[in-house]
Structures are given as C-alpha cells and as structure tokens.
Nucleic acid binder design. Sequence first.
DNA 1: GCACTGCATCGTCAAATACGCTGCAAGCCG
DNA 2: CGGCTTGCAGCGTATTTGACGATGCAGTGC
Lengths: 309, 309
Amino acid sequence: MVFSFRQLEYFVAAGESGSVTRAAAGSHSSQPTVSAAIAKLERALGVQLFVRHHAQGLSLTPEGRRFLAEAKTLLRHASEVERFATTLSDEVAGTLDLACLVTLAPLVTPSLVREFRATHPRVSVELVESHQQGLLDRLRGGLSSVALTYDLQLPGEITFEPLADLPPHALVAADHRLALRKRVSLEELAREPHILLDLPTSREYFMSLFAEAGVEPNIAIRSEHPETIRTLVANGFGYAIVNARPRSDTALDGGRVVTLPLRGPVRPMRLGLASLRGIRETRTVTAFKEHCRSAITPSGVPGMLSPEE
Amino acid sequence: MVFSFRQLEYFVAAGESGSVTRAAAGSHSSQPTVSAAIAKLERALGVQLFVRHHAQGLSLTPEGRRFLAEAKTLLRHASEVERFATTLSDEVAGTLDLACLVTLAPLVTPSLVREFRATHPRVSVELVESHQQGLLDRLRGGLSSVALTYDLQLPGEITFEPLADLPPHALVAADHRLALRKRVSLEELAREPHILLDLPTSREYFMSLFAEAGVEPNIAIRSEHPETIRTLVANGFGYAIVNARPRSDTALDGGRVVTLPLRGPVRPMRLGLASLRGIRETRTVTAFKEHCRSAITPSGVPGMLSPEE
DNA sequence: GCACTGCATCGTCAAATACGCTGCAAGCCG
DNA sequence: CGGCTTGCAGCGTATTTGACGATGCAGTGC
C-alpha cells in the first residue's frame, strides 16, 4: 500500500476543514506533521490533492475532491473492520464454535444450547459432534473453541474443567434375565455377549474397566454409533457399557432398555469442558462455560437420568 | 486505527499459508518481522488470531478465520482506492473540469468537447461558464482545472497559454447605415448608441479601446448576456463591440447582424488556456490542452468566423 | 536420541514520524 | 502604505516504529 491510514486521516481532516492547522488541532497532531503527511501522500499517489493559498488555507483540487470521497469510505470501512474485530472477543455475540462428544451430544446439547441462546440471543452456535480424537484435533486446529467431553486421553496442551462424574452402567434389554437386578458385576457380564461402542479412546476406557476387574469381555458386535448399540441391546443381542444414560428407556425401534449400576470399584467418566491451553478466550466462550457450570452439576446433567435414578 | 495495512497484509499472508515463515517469504520480509507484526495486531485487537503449533506452523482460530475474511476485503478495497487515485492523474479518463468564458462557450466548446471526447471516450467533461473573475476564482478554488478565456486581468499565479488573437469588431444590424462599410473607426461609432456587455474585466477592456482612441462611447444599454446584446443590436438599438464572431449572422429573434473590423490600432483579445501555476496537471488536462492547441489556431477558431471572413 | 522444523525473543540499526522553530508570502487593517 | 497577522513549507532533532540476523526453545519425526 502506497499510503497509510494516518495519511488518509490527516488528508480527510485537512480536506474537510480546508486548513492544515485546523486538521492538526483536530487530529491531536502538529501542523508540520500534517503538512508533511499530505505532501508525502501526494507524492506517493502522483496526484495533486490541494491548492495552497498563502495565509488562507487550502482548497481541494478536482482530483482531491474525488479522492476525498474514496478515502472517507475506506476509513469508514476500516473502522467497521476494527469494530468487528473487537466485537469478536469483547462481546457475547457472533458464533460459538462448540464441539461435543457424539455420545453426549444428543442428550446434553439441546437444552444446553437452547438455554444459552435464551440468555444470549446475539450468539449463534455452530455445533460439531465427533469422537474424542476428533474433538482434540478440532481444538488444536482452531476449528472449535471449546468441547464438551470426558477427561479421556487429554494431552498437556488441553485444559479440562470437570463438571460431573458419570459412573458406568450396564445397558440391557428390559426383558433381559439381569434386567431386574439392583446392580451387576463385571464378572457376571463377562459371560454375556458384549456390544462394544468402538470409538477411539472410549473403546480403551471400556476395556480398562474389565482389565481392572481381571476379566475379559466377550465382544460379540462392534459399532461406532451409539444409537445402533442401544437398538442392538434392546433386541437382546447382548449388553453394553454406557456412562451417559438418556431419560428415555426406548431404543429407536421402540424396544425397551434398562441401565444397571456396576458392582465394585469402577472409575467413572468425568464430564467437563475441554479447551486449548494458552488461548485468550472470547467473552462468548467465557459466557458459555459459565452457563455450563450452572447447568451441568454432579447432581444432574441435562437430558440424562440423575445419579440415583 | 489500531492496525496498519502492513499488519493486515502479514496477517492475511500467514493466515492463508498457515505459516509465518512462508508468509515472510511471500511478503519479501523476514520471519521475525511477520511474527512481531501479528503479535502486535493480536494485542491491538484483543483477539487471538492463531493457534501456534510447535514445529508445524499456525492454525487460525475461529475468530481469526472470521477476521481474515474482513481483512481481505478491506485490503482489496484499499488497493481499489489506490488504483483509483493513480488513475486520477495517470490516465486520460475520469472527469475534465473545464471552465470557459461565457461569451466564448457557445461558440468554441461544442465542437472542441465533441472532438476531444471522440479521441478520449473515457473522459466526461464538466463545463462551467462564467465571466473572467468567476473563472479565476474557480481556478484558484480548485473548482476547475483549466479555463478557456482571454488574457485579461491575469494575476501572477495564473499561467496563460495564448492560442489565437481575436481583434475587436463592431457589431451592427444588417440594415444599419454602417452595415455595408468595409471597416469603421471608433470615432464614428462613438456617436452611435453603444450596447455594452457589462461583465467584470470585459467591460474594462471595451472601455480601454475607446480611451486609447481618445473618445467616449455613448452607452445606451447594458446587459450581462451576450445573446441579449446581439438581439438588441439586430433590432437597431445601436452597436456593440465583440471579439468572438459566431458563424451565424442571425440573432435569437431572427434579426440579422454584421461585424465590421475597427480602423486603427486596436489591441486584440488573446484567446487561450488559463490554469493555476504550480499545479501538477493530470494527464486528462494535458491531453485537453494538446487538443486545444491543434483545434484553436491563429487562422481559425471552432465556431467562429476566420480572420479574413 | 538426535537432527530438524518453525515460532518467539533479543539486540541492533535504519527509516518513518513526531515536534518546535523559523521562513516566507499574501491578506488584513489602521 | 507599512506593520501585523495568518497559515503552509522547510529545517534540525528526538522518538518511535519497523526491519533484520542471531539465537532460544519446544515439539516433531526418523
């Protein structure tokens, strides 16, 4: 660019006031500074912008008058861009780039987002669902600002704020022979056919539960889709391990399922907010995190059964 | 403005290439320079634009991605303004701000402007007519770039390039008693009723002709409008002095007039181009002046009778 | 484990920008 | 008509900005 914003500002001020001196006063600058800036601008553009009058200021040339109009719209555009940029981080507005673990998304995001937008109507939410590895990649790649997920396999550059613990449950069909039990042990389950939610990192978590109990599951079917798992269970293909327990006991095909707590010491999943360390977060993200803190608590997560249910 | 064009350019280059190093290479700059510029931009806007990856470049944050789009349109706008500015003086295009003496305008400007625009179709002409004082004020005030006029009362800051001499003639009705004379003296005319074109500076010129001849005109009527003078003459109210002689011998009401050369030493009017001294003229103005030089010569002025006619 | 990559930081230096002072030319006024 | 005022341009100088090479440092990848 052959000119600077400063030069344009001085030029506009001088052009509108018809005086270098008045322009300098209005721009909190000195007369020689404005004079030199305008002279330099004229040289850079190769255009005579002003007619100088001795002892009585300046007049715009025809070219100066036309350039003045263009310069003003350019400066207005620039200050709009500046305003836009500050709005990006200083106001609860614009777009919230939210990511959520696929297994959690259909349960927690509907009410969470609805209530957030009710208090902050100027925010629109762009929601992406993925498995844990995908979420971390999105955070690292700057594609999402914050992720609602479990504290699984979190590398050092990711910060995590836990909000609620979700202990694992066995998911069985309502007419399963274990369905009426108060609780069930992993040893008992190991004899049943296992339906595995086969997603990166969640897979490793499920396997670690069995490993700590010293038994090995009998994996019958794998699927990447939580709803498929649930429907398979409802149809009596076997049992699954789940941490997120929907309020509904019905699978997509109308079959019924029930959840049973696991007996013994089982590490719960920790639901919380993940984001990239060392990033100056926008006010929109701050507001969303705050909203999550009040909406998601150890005694209740939106869309899920509460711990005692 | 909290940011500079340079900062935006570096930011856009880094955002599009995903690398400070590549951005620096593409911007003919060094890596630390670009790095510092981006850091400063982020601080100024209060927005985190990039996620830094160790040993593998940068990713834009969601906010950075949105700001990138705005920055690019602003830079495009700026380069359009820059292009517009250079076009103002470097190309024969845009608007020619032309001023012309009111008595000359209807004679010379139609063909002059028509032919000029035929060779330079991208130029539009803004023509203003005024008396000599008005023309000088327009030039000084930067309202017009060049004036077609006489070399009357020209102050030092006005340059004048003469193109043709126009000796004064007596204008009388076709049925006037002097109408058939080959030439006429100011002494003879002084006895007739004089119809004065009463405009600043042209008035003084006419009076000076009589003063130098040692006689005093008998002023019967004054008018500021050349066509009124001409029609008054055609109706036998008296005679007038004119330098610009239209090709037509008819006044607006259909009456006929004739022009007679003046006897003795009379100072002619000098028709030419006036502009403000010390102004860098645009290529459009240069082209117009050049066109005038070829179209207006001592042996002929467009729209006027030639010297021998 | 070790070389490599790539951004950030440091110190230095040149250029741009700022300012006060002064000069100059023309208008203004008694 | 001379002296005063006005207002822009130029000069010299100080400060800030921007540029660069060298270096540091953290993480990748063979």
